[in-house]
């Protein structure tokens, strides 16, 4: 089970890393923000999978912090982009 979950974490990471192309290519600011948002969600997925694989529940707290700040950061980015 642990190996399968770790493999799933690798796959999740690979997926969102592909999305980084949009951070780099844009073309609009909205695209870059979206890609960052996806990276946040993917990062959270990786952490949850690693937590279940290794039994380290402190990773859930880290995922919680990322989730709470993801909404804040995205709102701040949109406001910044509007100026």
């Amino acid at each position: 089970m642990a190996e399968a979950l770790t493999a799933a974490a690798v796959l999740a990471l690979l997926t969102v890393l592909a999305g980084l192309v949009r951070v780099v290519r844009g073309p609009t600011r909205a695209d870059r923000i979206m890609a960052a948002q996806l990276l946040g969600t993917g990062g959270i997925a990786v952490l949850l999978l690693l937590a279940a694989a290794g039994g380290d529940m402190a990773l859930l707290d880290l995922a919680l912090v990322l989730a709470v700040l993801a909404a804040f950061a995205a709102a701040a980015f949109v406001q910044a982009a509007r100026r």
Binding site: L13, V24, G26, R29, A35, A36, G43, L59, D61, L62
Partner: peptide
């Protein structure tokens, strides 16, 4: 602006790196 977003994304991945370095 793009560089700023890039920095945020780098920071996010760095947080994962610190997990792998054993320091939550």
């Amino acid at each position: 602006f793009a560089a700023g977003i890039g920095f945020v994304a780098t920071g996010l991945l760095l947080a994962l790196a610190w997990v792998r370095l054993g320091s939550v």
